[in-house]
Amino acid sequence: MKKKLVLMTVLLFGLGVVLTSCVTIPVKPSAANFKAPVITLESFEIPQYDGYWYYGSKTKPTKGKAGNHGAPLPMNFVFSIENPNPYPVLLEGMKFTVAFDKEFDLVTVSNQDASWIPAGKTNQVRASTLITVRSGLLSLLVTGGYKLKARGWSPWKALERWWTGVPDYTLPVTVHEGAFVFKADGLVKVLPFETTFK
């Protein structure tokens, strides 16, 4: 009886050891082992294009109300996020500014969608935004006057250049002042990001 009990104990212990060895021991995130994920701007897309146009509030529309309206320019930015860590990390949000002709900031995008990147894998996240000729015009008129003057451009010249050149991929689009917030078990890492899509 006693022999049986000892044998059973040894067998159970052995089985436990075998099963434990089959399970990967998870690595706990720490400040020392938390490596920065690698961010790449994979693609820049204009998901819908409606040309370049603008009409002021004095123009009577065929339907709807008159107003100051300009062509929309929706933009998608697809980022690849590679997680080099042996544990998953959470992309808690990202923020970046989009500039045309390098120095004219047209929009600051904030994406607060949370996204997990598995250990050692690469995930893709998409940030979408939209500007219009009207919003671009106001931004240029009130804030970009000195820069336009330095280039000898009117706001209209700049807007037409961008609304025709950016969808055509003939003008570079700069993503700058980027901040990607990653979390792993309470640890936070904010990565700066800057690139130009040519």
Partner: peptide, 18 residues
């Protein structure tokens, strides 16, 4: 406001708020 007529100051305000 991070795109419009006051975006030069609005952007900084938005960043500060977040």
């Amino acid at each position: 406001d991070t795109t419009g007529a006051t975006s030069d100051v609005g952007k900084d305000y938005a960043l500060g708020m977040a």
